[in-house]
Simulated scan of single mutants.
Amino acid sequence: MSLATLRERLIEHLEPAVSWTADRPPARSDFDLNPEAERPVRTLRPAAVLIPVIAEPDGATVLMTRRSDSLASHTGQIAFPGGRLDPGETAVEAALREAFEEVALDPALVEVLGVGEAYETGTSFLVTPVIGWLTAKPATTPSLDEVAEVFEVPWDYLMDPANHRRDSYDREGQPRRWYWAITHEERYIWGVTAGIVRALRTRLYGEDAGPDVVAEDAA
């Protein structure tokens, strides 16, 4: 798929950013693979992530981060730049602000093409993926108190369902928890980040024709 065709597909299949509202219900969640898990009634905290798609000469890539090992939670995990919304912010404003704070990505370089489906996390966040388009590889500088590394993954690799699998881990006294995972080179992309990638792939290209790969051992 050419870069121009990919950009057109994203615009066609994403929800326009101007139609975003803070009260939009989640369409995907950590509970999708765990229907037996208790899903408490709770107020979800709005958050947003930026999925920066970079139009590289050899094909599109996606900018991702590895979280700092010094953080109180989710240390070392692969993520998109993002975080919770400040009062009065839209999802787009929050995603661009967080990307600037985390990796110094200049918001002026990002063309927002639309937003993906809202995703409910097991930690009570309602995450809106904001998809941005960059015409060239941007200069980035990680904020070391939050981000240990900034890197890119080929778009085609992330969107290939052959690279998606269901992994799991066991918790004492609780049902096994399943989650989406993607391994690229030495990096393990899992949980919410992989779930958002999976949801975006389905929105853009439809459901898979082939079976999912299931890993029976905990990661």
Score class of each variant (00 low, 15 high):
148 A>G: 10
162 A>N: 03
133 W>R: 09
152 E>Q: 10
135 T>Q: 11
174 Q>I: 00
136 A>I: 07
159 M>W: 01
133 W>C: 07
169 Y>D: 01
146 E>N: 14
166 R>H: 07
151 F>C: 14
142 P>N: 08
160 D>G: 01
170 D>G: 06
167 D>L: 06
159 M>F: 10
175 P>V: 09
153 V>F: 07
174 Q>K: 02
170 D>K: 14
163 N>D: 02
134 L>P: 12
159 M>G: 03
152 E>H: 07
166 R>A: 02
157 Y>Q: 00
138 P>H: 14
164 H>D: 03
131 I>P: 10
155 W>P: 08
155 W>F: 12
168 S>G: 01
130 V>Y: 08
150 V>G: 13
170 D>I: 05
133 W>G: 02
150 V>E: 09
143 S>T: 13
149 E>D: 09
173 G>D: 06
165 R>M: 09
158 L>E: 05
160 D>H: 08
137 K>G: 00
139 A>H: 07
159 M>R: 05
164 H>Y: 08
144 L>Q: 12
151 F>R: 09
147 V>P: 13
146 E>A: 15
170 D>W: 03
171 R>C: 04
161 P>G: 08
162 A>Y: 03
139 A>E: 15
154 P>K: 12
148 A>H: 08
154 P>G: 03
156 D>L: 05
147 V>A: 00
140 T>R: 14
134 L>K: 12
136 A>W: 04
167 D>E: 15
151 F>L: 07
138 P>T: 05
148 A>M: 06
150 V>F: 00
154 P>F: 13
172 E>A: 11
161 P>R: 13
135 T>N: 14
167 D>I: 02
159 M>H: 11
168 S>M: 14
174 Q>R: 04
164 H>E: 07
140 T>H: 15
142 P>Q: 09
162 A>I: 00
141 T>I: 02
173 G>H: 10
164 H>T: 00
171 R>Y: 11
164 H>S: 05
132 G>Q: 12
168 S>Y: 01
145 D>N: 12
170 D>A: 15
168 S>A: 15
132 G>Y: 08
174 Q>M: 04
161 P>V: 08
174 Q>V: 05
156 D>Q: 02
157 Y>T: 01
133 W>V: 08
163 N>A: 10
153 V>L: 14
163 N>C: 04
143 S>W: 12
158 L>V: 11
169 Y>M: 05
153 V>K: 01
165 R>D: 04
163 N>T: 00
144 L>C: 01
141 T>S: 15
149 E>F: 13
134 L>R: 06
157 Y>E: 00
134 L>F: 11
134 L>H: 13
160 D>T: 00
155 W>C: 04
156 D>K: 02
166 R>Q: 08
139 A>L: 15
164 H>N: 00
130 V>I: 11
